[in-house]
Design a protein around this nucleic acid. Structure first.
Length: 465
RNA sequence: GCUCCCAUCGUCUAGAGGCCUAGGACGGAGCCCUCUCAAGGCUUAAACCGGGGUUCGAAUCCCCGUGGGAGCGCCA
């Protein structure tokens, strides 16, 4: 049997990291087994679904590299099929029209709640034979009244529900449109989904879905209900801590595989390993190893994981992702080789690509202002001899390479009888505008002779020379 | 309220009865390295929710609490 999994987000809100992790688990499981991964957009709620949300799903999945083999399917384009099954249920006596008004249902619910009972539809219309004039009925599924439903869940183990806890749920609204719990069942059955991996907020819906599936003549798939992701404060994920569009992470400079690596470790582990390539994730992941409890989103760890991936990445690859970050900061059309060189010298010094762009600006554009404290401390009378000597010595360098440049700087320090720091630090401020940069020799090399000398002279002028 | 789910350092987790004086990682503290910033190395503080069982032995199994979460919609 080939494994078929699906990711079925609803475009009523933006795709966030909780959804992404579910998608990742489904995708990994399918890939691990050489199966099929299906993307399906659950847009039956016309009122609340938005094109923008659909766009985020498509673009997000694309950015993350979680490619689907089938789809994307849209439930709104499958209405005829749902209608067909509803009619079939009606014909076979597995569903019935219900004429109860929303007000009546509301009263019923309130009474049951007041009586400390679970609110359930009481089945009033189950045996009704005549339509009620002037009422557009809904269609309800006839849920079994006794017995139990066993949900065999690979992460939770067996979970049993009593049918007496369930009621006859609405599968078609009075306007004829089908509802979620029903559509999922038809879709998963039609699409031959073998493993349903989804959030554990669906665990309670599962028994009624199994009942409908059984009525359809189907066999339940394997279920895997994964716990939700909490915010950093342990509270439910909200806009404040991470329920933002997944594309936000792209903007903030995270590598897709790093985000995925962080997310896969929420609920899953492989010994003490923290950093996984996509290939390793595919090779090692198993849904059965996912644990049951909810986990909190930790931005600090995400940042660390991102840095680990950046350190391992090829500079050329980093450059590709760095470019848009530079553009966002106003750098116009930088030369490719230069971007690669910058990515290479910065890749271990920052947590995100956005940060990389921010701290690398001096490689791409003129220094508009020196860091005030740095200039006061390093570009002063005391530094003048070093700056002058540097200007002179560097102007004579022909082979502008880090080793030679390192030689020059150390020689200047020796000649002046001071430590390397006394020379390198003023130079650093002069050419970068601040006190932090890659090692001085590589900074010099990447910057290029012309820019270095120009900046050095400006700094000497500023220092009052 | 009813039903279902969950429970190891602040956080992510290892742990499937003895290997646990509970391991790793992020974050924190300190030290080393060092031209700055990082990276890296070393050290350190920090947890089995509580109570009962079962067992020679329980973080691991069972029960009861407690705490958190979800569902109970003509939402998905």
């Amino acid at each position: 049997m080939t494994i078929r999994t699906r990711f079925a987000p609803s475009p009523t809100g933006l795709l966030h990291i909780g959804g992404v992790r579910t998608a990742l688990f489904s995708w990994l499981y399918a890939r691990h087994h050489g199966g099929t991964f299906i993307l399906r957009v659950e847009d039956t709620d016309r009122e609340r679904s938005t094109d923008a949300a659909v766009q985020v799903i498509l673009e997000g999945m694309e950015w993350l590299g979680l490619g689907h083999d089938e789809g994307p399917f849209y439930q709104t384009r499958r209405m005829d099929r749902y209608r067909e099954v509803i009619d079939q249920f009606l014909r076979e006596g597995k569903a019935y029209y219900c004429y109860c008004s929303k007000d009546e249902l509301e009263v019923m619910r309130n009474q049951q709640f007041a009586a400390k009972q679970k609110p359930r539809y009481d089945g009033t219309c189950r045996h009704r034979t005549q339509p009620v004039a002037g009422v557009q009925p809904v269609v309800r599924f006839k849920n079994p009244v006794d017995g139990t439903v066993l949900v065999n869940d690979v992460v939770h183990g067996p979970v049993t529900f009593a049918n007496t806890e369930l009621d006859d749920l609405i599968i078609a609204r009075s306007d004829g449109t089908p509802t979620y719990n029903f559509c999922v069942v038809v879709d998963d059955w039609d699409m031959k989904v073998t493993h349903v991996i989804r959030g554990d907020d669906h665990l309670n819906n599962t028994p009624r879905q199994i009942n409908m599936l059984t009525a359809l003549g189907g066999q339940p798939p394997v279920y895997a209900h994964v716990a939700m992701i909490l915010g950093a404060d342990g509270a439910k994920l909200s806009k404040r801590h991470g329920a933002v569009s997944v594309l936000q992470y792209r903007e903030e400079g995270y590598l897709p595989e790093a985000l995925l690596n962080y997310l896969v470790r929420l609920g899953w582990s492989h010994g003490d390993q923290e950093i996984f390539s996509m290939e390793e994730m595919v090779a090692l992941f198993d849904i059965a190893d996912v644990n049951k409890s909810a986990s909190a989103f930790d931005p600090d760890k995400l940042a660390w994981v991102n840095q680990q991936h950046m350190m391992k990445a090829a500079p050329e690859y980093l450059a590709k992702h760095l470019r848009p970050q530079l553009t966002a900061l106003g750098v116009v059309d930088p030369e490719e080789g230069h971007v690669v060189a910058v990515a290479k010298v910065q890749q271990a010094r920052v947590k995100t690509l956005k940060e990389m762009a921010q701290v690398s600006l001096y490689f791409f554009q003129d220094i508009t202002a020196f860091d005030e404290k740095a200039a006061a401390k390093y570009l002063n009378a005391e530094a003048m001899p070093a700056l002058r000597a540097l200007n002179e010595a560097l102007s004579l360098v022909v082979a502008w390479q880090a080793p030679a440049l390192h030689e020059v700087v150390t020689q200047v320090a020796t000649a002046l009888g001071v430590g390397l720091g006394k020379v390198a630090q003023p130079l650093r401020v002069a050419i970068s505008g601040g006190t932090a940069s890659p090692p001085i020799d590589v900074t010099l090399e990447v910057l290029g002779k012309e820019r270095v000398l120009g900046r050095l002279q400006k700094a000497i002028a500023l220092a009052g020379g």
